[in-house]
Nucleic acid binder design. Structure first.
Lengths: 224, 224
DNA sequence: CAAGAACCGGAGAGGCTGCCTCAACTTAAA
DNA sequence: TTTAAGTTGAGGCAGCCTCTCCGGTTCTTG
């Protein structure tokens, strides 16, 4: 559990009810951010936690600090996944597992996806964890390449783009067919093998009506 | 050139200066929408055209009508591309050309991309043109499959998802490496061939710094 | 060369949304 | 019992966008 936000806090313990509320807020933040992304309001989170907005602001100076407190742990999870991939006997299988698992994580947590792919959220701590991830993922990729199973012209910097692409599919379709992203990720992975091959797609295509429904729900991103 | 927006206008000709302004507005709308997407304000467009906002609103009852007037023609272009694809000798080459050309169109016109992939913009006329596109594209796909070169488990409904994926790459990277999307589209297409094969990627990977810059600029989409 | 219809400009009304504050009230803990 | 810590939620403030309005300008026609 991440501690509160004060820089070098003397760690004065919170009053019992306050501590309870703090937990409730964190819990709600996790739920709300994962469903609605970082655009969720602190008002939303407060309401969802059954406390007043003021209570949230008393505990976290602003949204950014809350995000920070929220996502450091989850980012560490990704690190653990990378380590598991490196421990795998078959480098290619390790790579595949890592890729599927991280995308799965993104699919279940919109907030995490946004923190991972943008530098606009979270501050030092988040950036630091992310930096620690880079060499790890690089090795996952290079090991798979060295084993001759991942195409040699693939690059670590392609990884976030993979996530970006599938992230968009998830965003577009989650209300209609929350699992179709697997189809497109499989398609993508079929283009990644060094020895070309075709895996069976793990999910059928959408029908036109699904697509229509998705198009109705979708709103394009807002500026930069 | 699309005419003005009145339902069954008696076609009273505009005054010369008014007509000039109307053209200027349309031209600016095309430019501004294509660069900044449909989130651009009518104020922006007016300013860019060197006229007052009032002038825009005098000519187009609201933003939606302007969008409508704007994009019907461009959508027709896509239809023409599909027909060209059907006329190609090699069905697979036709499919490839169509895919590359449409994505290229999206890459140069953010507004068009948004109109294509969302049902929230444009009204009857746009919807109608889009509907006419469906059977055409279906045939492009099926012809490529019948020739045995496009993988048989591909579906027409996968086409918009391809565009969605690459659209996101474009969005994410255009400020930094406006052409990398080609790399990822090639990767995707490598997963689409029935007979697996590896084409040389038409664009190298980004370096870490580029990726960082892209991540800084990127803001996640805003709700639905 | 009027006269007047059509047109222009752009400040700002009106409406929405989101971040955060504060004064009045409640409660745990010493 | 006292009091510091905690809570609350309406509302201040700021930004953003769509669209209106009216004083002033410009074209066109008789």
């Amino acid at each position: 559990m991440t501690r509160d936000a004060a820089p070098a806090a003397p760690a004065r313990p919170l009053r019992r009810d306050a501590e309870l509320n703090r937990r409730r807020i964190l819990e709600s933040a996790r739920e709300v951010f994962s469903q609605r992304g970082l655009e969720a309001t602190l008002d939303d989170i407060a309401h969802h936690a059954g406390v007043g907005v003021g209570t949230v602001y008393r505990r976290f100076p602003n949204k950014e600090h809350l995000v920070e407190a929220m996502f450091v742990d989850r980012l560490e999870e990704v690190g653990a996944m990378a380590e598991a991939a490196l421990a795998a006997d078959d480098p290619w299988q390790g790579f595949l597992d890592f890729a599927w698992k991280t995308v799965e994580l993104h699919s279940s947590d919109r907030g995490l996806r946004e923190v991972m792919l943008s530098k606009a959220f979270g501050r030092e701590r988040v950036a630091e964890v992310k930096n620690r991830l880079v060499p790890l993922i690089t090795e996952v990729v290079e090991r798979a390449q060295a084993s001759g199973q991942l195409r040699p012209d693939f690059s670590v910097t392609d990884m976030p783009m993979l996530h970006q692409m599938i992230g968009e599919v998830i965003e577009y379709t989650h209300a209609v067919r929350p699992e179709v992203w697997r189809r497109y990720f499989a398609l993508l992975l079929d283009g990644l093998r060094a020895e070309p091959g075709r895996a069976e797609l793990p999910h059928g295509p959408m029908c036109i009506d699904d697509l229509d429904a998705a198009a109705c729900a979708w709103r394009p991103p807002r500026h930069g």
